[in-house]
Simulated scan of single mutants.
Amino acid sequence: MFLDQYGNPKEVTPTRLHDHLQWIDSPPLNINRHYLHTRLKESDLSSEVVDAFMGHWDSGQEPWASYSTFCPREYQHLIASVIQPLMVQQGWKALKGAAL
């Protein structure tokens, strides 16, 4: 989300994102998802784990369904082992917010 000049949350829409980024070129606005999907696949995670993270699954394959055998703890461990180093590599860090 974006915050307006009064601190009110505003939904990220393609138009708002385009206006905010002010890029000279116009790459696809979901370029981040393509990049992340590629990095996850390169990390040798199973397709099932990558698809769960990206929200890609077909009917009957939902990882969070009542009768799914998908283990949330194992999933969290697998995803964190790739996402955390990726975030460090790219310079992401947690910042203290006004609410804390």
Rank of each mutant, 00 (worst) to 15 (best):
E74K: 11
S46I: 03
P85F: 11
Q61T: 07
T69L: 07
S26Q: 14
I79S: 01
A52Q: 11
R33T: 08
K93V: 00
E48A: 15
F70H: 04
H18L: 10
S47N: 13
R73S: 13
P72K: 12
V82K: 04
R16Y: 08
G7S: 07
H34C: 05
Y35G: 00
S68I: 06
R39M: 15
Q89K: 06
W64E: 05
L40Y: 08
M1D: 14
A65C: 04
C71A: 08
T69I: 06
G97Y: 04
M54F: 05
W23F: 14
D44S: 13
Y35R: 03
Q89L: 05
P14C: 10
A98Q: 08
Q61C: 13
L3W: 04
L29K: 01
P85C: 05
H37T: 06
P14I: 11
S81Q: 12
V12I: 15
P72H: 07
S66A: 14
Y67H: 12
E42W: 08
Q22T: 07
L95E: 08
I31K: 06
I79H: 01
Q89G: 00
V88L: 10
T13L: 08
H56C: 10
A52D: 07
L45H: 05
P28D: 14
A52H: 07
R33H: 13
L78A: 01
Q61P: 02
L21P: 03
E62H: 13
D25N: 14
M1R: 10
Q89V: 00
A98P: 01
G97K: 03
V88G: 00
T13K: 06
R33P: 09
S66F: 04
K96Y: 07
A94I: 13
H56E: 09
M87V: 00
V82E: 04
V49A: 15
L100D: 06
K96G: 05
D4K: 10
V12L: 14
R33K: 13
K96E: 14
G60Q: 11
E11I: 12
P28R: 15
Q76P: 00
L40M: 14
S59I: 15
L3G: 01
P9Q: 10
Y67N: 08
L78K: 02
S81F: 03
P28S: 13
I83E: 02
A52W: 09
T38Q: 10
I24Q: 15
P9Y: 11
L29N: 00
D25V: 03
D44H: 15
P9V: 09
A99Q: 12
L95Q: 07
Q5E: 15
I83A: 03
I31V: 12
D4L: 10
A94N: 02
Q61M: 14
L17S: 03
S47Y: 11
E48K: 15
S26I: 08
H18G: 06
H56K: 09
W57G: 01
